[in-house]
Simulated assay, not measured.
Amino acid sequence: MVKGIVLAFCAFAVFAWGDAIVKAIGHDLDPFEVTFFGYLIPLLLSPVFMKPGDSVIDIVRWKRPWLMGTRVFLIAATTPLSVMAFRSLPFAEAFALLFLMPSLVTVLSIFILKEHVRWRRGLAVCAAFIGVLVIVRPGFKELLPGHFAALAGALCAAGGVIAGRMIGQTENRFTLIGTVFLATTVLAGVLMIPGFSWPTTHQWILLLAFAATAFVAQALFIIATIYAPADRLGATQYSQILWALAIGALFFDEWPDALALVGIAIVVAAGLFIFAREQTLKRSEPQAGLSDETIRPETAPSSARR
């Protein structure tokens, strides 16, 4: 169990550094182009996640095509939206808004899955939205496109999680992982065409580094699930906010003000509480299994999303 937790922390540290690379690329490249090249290499390497009996064709062979199509599209949309957020907003602020995802999952589960949400989780959801208002402070600070991109990314990631829960265990691991890489690459590849520009040598280095983090982080998380159940590792994703604060301050000279820190703390605390409550409920109910156990818990998506 301990080895799994350590590997999960390492995976999310790599994810955080990948997001930092995205931010370092800045506004010089179209966000869809960044996403395309960042996921093309992991797509080509995705067969390493195959188990005996798997086939490359499984990447497009879906047992529940409508649900898989919905899930794949939502998760594929999460990454370019996250890229837009990281390019436009302070690093830690973008992360905090993307961490609204667990609260949005709770809200969507009420309307789509008809789940009964008790008052404790309801209060945590309300607290998370209050935290977002403290961070964004509409009417008191400028609302940037990145704010809307981060919120849209969190919503898409939440929708992907809900679709994953509806899929259950009908799809195998390689299908779940490979389709994310494939769909993200294809969607970003089409949308990057109008704003495409050939990367410079420096940009190629950054793009390759971003692709490497996407693949390595996913591999580390999958290895972590060998030593510990994936649903027990979800809380480790919140370590990314600490990386975001450190990286933003040291490399981008971003120092959140006191109110922003309060808002970040509220959103993260609410997300952790929701996670803890869901774990408590799972232990008291028959295990149904999650289809997205081997996929990065997509808060946090960047990259989730990825």
Rank of each mutant, 00 (worst) to 15 (best):
F273T: 14
E293K: 07
I247M: 08
I247W: 01
Q218G: 12
T280K: 12
I266C: 05
S284Q: 14
A288T: 13
R283K: 15
Q237V: 15
A270D: 01
L272Y: 04
L233H: 02
I193C: 04
V268T: 14
L233G: 06
L290D: 05
S239R: 03
W243C: 12
L259S: 12
R283L: 14
P256K: 03
P256I: 14
L281H: 07
G289A: 11
G189Y: 09
I274L: 10
R283F: 01
L191W: 03
A260M: 09
L290H: 09
A188I: 10
A212N: 04
V262M: 06
Q218H: 14
T185C: 10
W204K: 06
H202A: 15
L245N: 04
W204C: 03
T225C: 13
G248Y: 06
Q279N: 10
T200I: 14
P199Y: 04
L191E: 01
L245A: 06
L250K: 02
Q287I: 15
A211L: 12
L233F: 01
T236A: 13
I274S: 07
Q218F: 04
F210N: 02
F273W: 10
A224T: 06
K282H: 06
L281W: 02
L261A: 01
P229Q: 09
E293P: 00
A246Y: 00
